[in-house]
Design a binder for these strands. Sequence first.
RNA 1: GGAUGCUUAGCUCAGCGGGAGAGCAUCGCCCUUACAAGGCGGGGGUCACAGGUUCGAACCCUGUAGCAUCCACCA
Length: 854
Amino acid sequence: MLDKRYDHLQVEEGKYEKWKEGGYFTAGDKSKQPFSLVIPPPNVTGKLHLGHVMDTIPDDIIARYKRMKGFDVLWVPGVDHAGIATQAKVEERLRKQGISRYDLGREKFLEKAFEWKEEYSATIHKQWASIGLSVDYTRERFTLDEGLQKAVKRVFKTLYDEGLIYRGERIINWDPELRTALSNIEVVHSDDEGEFFYFLYDVVGEDKQIVVATTRPETMFGDVAVFVNPKDKRFADLVGKKVINPANGQELPLMADPYVDISFGTGAMKCTPAHDPNDFNLAKKYGFPFIKVLDESAKMNELAGEYKGMDRYECRKALVERIKEQGHLQKIEKIVHSVGHSERSGAVVEPMLSKQWFVKMRPLAEAVLASQKSAGKVDFIPKRFEKVLLRWMASCDDWCISRQLWWGHRIPAYYSKEDGSVVVSETPLDPALYDQDEDVLDTWFSSGLWPFATLGWPDKTPDFDRYFPTSVLVTGYDIIFFWVSRMVFQSLHFTGKSPFKQVVIHGLIRDEQGRKMSKSLGNGIDPIDVIAKYGVDALRYFITTNSTPGQDMRYSDEKLSASANYLNKIWNACRYVELTLGEDYQPKDIDKKGLNTLDQYILTRLSKTIAAVEKKMDAYQFGAASSILYDFVYDDFCSFYLEMSKVSGDGATKDVLFHVIKSIILLIYPYCPFIAEEMYLSLPKHQNSIMEESYPEEMKGYRFPSSEKKGNILKQMIKDVRSYKSETGLAPNEAVKLILSPKLPFKGIEAYLTRFLFAKSIEEAPELPEGGRIYNYGGVSLFVEHEEDKGTAKARLNEEITRLEAEVARGEKMLSNPGFLAKAPKEKIKLEQDKLSLNKQKLAEAKAQLAKLG
RNA sequence: GGAUGCUUAGCUCAGCGGGAGAGCAUCGCCCUUACAAGGCGGGGGUCACAGGUUCGAACCCUGUAGCAUCCACCA
């Protein structure tokens, strides 16, 4: 027997361990159809936040639902080494102990990093348990484990041999704090306040000056030219002359190129090939050298002369001051411009010429674009997110994959000690003859292999054969570029298939004011606190049912509370059913012949509910599915049938109560497995765990349309009379006399009306008397005897008639419309016809009553 | 500059071609033996605006405005 109150702490106790140890999460039943998914691997950097809950609870609902539907579900868990992020954390920890990574050296540092990983994996496991993830621990993976190492090396080597990975000098994004290259999408742009410096450049051999504006004066030591637009009349006579760089006094050619925007700044632009991607292109076009003036910490190098060793911003300040003193500063303007910051360190990213490894994206991207037009495409839910992928694939630049870090997959390229030639090899080469590349790969390089490498690729494993491609992937829209796109092109290239059939995209969770949750705002919500307060089931329910796919949602304490209340409602309904069934009750099949009208009513509603919920579940519309169930639980079951069953507790009713509550428990289970398990195990007859149960059947043979109608009439009668009492100031429990005309709509209705309307008597009469309130239901009318003057009664009937006439007119108009009859679906037409005849009947009844009143 | 989403009840959001919905809040009545973390009954909306398509538009199309996000550019 369940306790009086739903106590989530008690309910959650021990269940996860039981499932896990019972092997319920382990895939491999070959008698079933496979269904597979991989977890978006959390970074080993920190603790669980609500974003992880958003990522993984839909996965868990899908996994639990599909298991009940008879699939062999494999859900692969794992964690991501998260290169830059983790290395930064480990370094920070070491720094607190007064150690730098260089003190330790590469090998020792990696030992520390692996210790960190072990520590955080343990935490992550606890967190998975606390939110109830049904992942298959026997197949857990790590992005740096042996299998992934093998896969990464195979991919790198293959792409290199195919010419799709190359090493080259390019302008890349440099993070001077972490001292590594970054890919374009690891740079976050923000509109920052800055200064626009206008400098005067003397023209050699002329008594003239031109004005060049820049936001980065310190890079002037690397300038090779000044460019203007060839159509710009202001400079037409000066092109071809030399100008003096006010930073170092060197002569620079004044050149013309259409790249320069006449209307921007002064129309004259300095060209710094080693520190700006556009200038780099110009320099290549005209054969200028690429002069670097910054080192890897963004400090000035020897070319900056007296400023050598200075930080870039200090140098900027000092240099501007000196140029001003020399009379070459025209003005300084405050501007707001977009500045790139490192996603991880926040440092202002320096575009810098550097030798790095790149993936040649065009051919790989084209393959994705082609695949998305084929039958093997990935279906996005919602559809619009496919465009995000396509747009990125259509325009992305080559991917800079080398990182000047230690924590990650070391690049399997080796340089000959003899002649410096490059060899890429999956197996280590003799260190006496070769030096391995010092750098590691971008974290997303290995994450991109996740769906197939975790199943055994490049080996031909049974799991790979059985579970690849995976069925569905759930992730947020913010990492479509980072992750989804890379999994898709890597998978297409190496397995020939898309890595998953469907991608379900969810939005981000925000705080109660709609702001992003962030560390700096301190507005993050710790799921552990939420679980302690409301229970994990309430959290799971809240997070999957309060938004629509792809849309952001706000955290709401109120809605969590509402979720917990809903669970308490089901809990108590279950408790009531158990109290009613009694200790000795033995579940048995429902005797179809022994059903009364309301039994038939609730079974019909249940059957329809199951069908509707299942349809939404299959489409991954968890919000829609849950609201269908919610309506059934509250309106049809708790407020109506369950109350009515208190009157008519005859033979079959107990079986029906049992059947319905069990179905509700099974339907809510994927969302709220803990409370569902607790309730399930308290039922008279059960397996070892709800995880051994199947999804409820639709029960097509148990639909009784006429009983459904009768039930709805009774529902409406009760509502009408209660409303009448409230409206006329009668107490809810005031005894009233009811008359039904011309006869009772179904046998046994008297008992329900007596109990719920406190009827003092119920009569059946062919004609209704005067002096009370009358309600019409089409074929049956209800009379409530109560003092009401004739005028009021007539006014009310007139109002009713006006309303019904409008209804009838509407129906007739619709049904006489040839366009409607030709184009509307058949069911819709039938529905309108039924509605019309019912309204006509009600109208006739109302008119007859009015006539009698005179 | 390009793209996407949002604008519906006081608040937070569903609905996305066939009669405006939920939760919370609000008002009134109830401690009815499953649940007061409850029950019952009510009030509350020209579905941002303007055009168009349709027999029929909150829903589709076009445009406008506001808010949000992403991408690109920014000497």
